[in-house]
Simulated scan of single mutants.
Amino acid sequence: MKNWLKLLPFWVPGLLLYAGLFIYPTITGFYYSFTNWDGLSPSYQFIGLENYVTVSQDIVFQKSLINNLKFMVAVVLSQSVISLLLAVQLTRQSKAIVALRALYFLPTILSSVSVGFIWTFIYDPTLGSLNGLLELVGLSSWTHNWIGDSTIAIFSIAAVQAWAHIGQMVILFVAGLQSIPKELLESARLDGAGRLGLFFRITWPLLAPAAAIVVSYTTIQSFKAFDLVFTMTGGGPAYSTEILSTYIYSSAFMSYTFGRAATGSVFFLALISFITFLQFRLLRTDRISY
């Protein structure tokens, strides 16, 4: 009891900040999802589940949900796999390796808006360097209107998202790989284990906690890619890159239907929580013993 009282001054400030910046806004947003508040009027009405019915039947919301799931799968798979492959090659300690880690991490320090503008120019169908490079190497048939074609626009933005954040995931994977006891790896090699056997029987099971963090963090990033999508396409063409965060923004600040925006936020929070829970359960980090 005395120890608990001694620690009280340390955790109360953090709890107050958490309550003021997360718990209270979450509860308030959940409450507004049952109202018809427009975000400006001092008065509003309680309308029950009407917003939930309206939003769930909204074609644009349905498209944004499907687009967000496509975006999430593309980003999580590409970013996790590529960052893991790079991390395996960057576990050694040398000046060149440290320089490469810094190089891969460099895009992470750029703002998403800057990244969006840079890649919008790269993807430009007439002046962009990507199509220019493809034509230069004789792959003119591969040139495309990368963010103007509704069939591939969401995946083009997903590639940019992965490029911008792979460096973060590489650092996490490198830390996880370096924490694996070298004695285990040496013992397995002496027993005749090959590279694939070492990876799947020793490295991957011990790396699963780091992988769980990478996958869950990447998932949350993919749902919070508002600034990148808004900068590059604004949700177009024909809502093909509309995701949940841009849908919420449009409902709140373009249509002034804050009640529906709050409802979209509730769906947003529930979906992220459910997907993250499934990921942690599938990776089974709680069953890993060292």
Rank of each mutant, 00 (worst) to 15 (best):
K63M: 13
M72P: 00
L69R: 06
L86N: 08
K70V: 08
F61T: 07
V73P: 00
Q79H: 09
V88S: 11
I82Q: 03
L85Y: 09
V76G: 06
L86V: 15
V75P: 07
S80L: 01
Q79I: 06
L84M: 14
V88W: 10
I82W: 01
Q89T: 15
L69V: 15
Q89G: 14
A74N: 03
L69Q: 04
I66A: 13
N68S: 10
L84Y: 07
I82G: 05
S83D: 01
L90W: 11
V76F: 05
I66P: 00
L65D: 04
S83I: 03
L69F: 15
I66M: 12
V73L: 15
L69S: 08
V75C: 12
L85E: 10
L84C: 09
K70W: 11
V75M: 09
L65W: 08
Q62A: 08
S83A: 08
S78P: 00
L85A: 15
S83W: 01
L65F: 15
V88H: 09
L84R: 02
S83K: 01
S83V: 02
N67R: 03
F71S: 05
K70F: 12
S80V: 05
Q89W: 13
L69N: 07
S80I: 04
F71P: 05
V88F: 13
I82R: 02
M72H: 05
A74Q: 01
S64P: 07
S78H: 00
M72Y: 12
N67Q: 07
N68L: 02
V81Q: 01
A74M: 03
Q89Y: 11
N67H: 04
F71Y: 15
L84N: 03
I66S: 11
V88L: 15
V73C: 09
I66L: 14
K70L: 13
Q62T: 06
V88N: 12
L65S: 08
N67M: 04
L84D: 04
L90R: 10
L86M: 15
S83F: 02
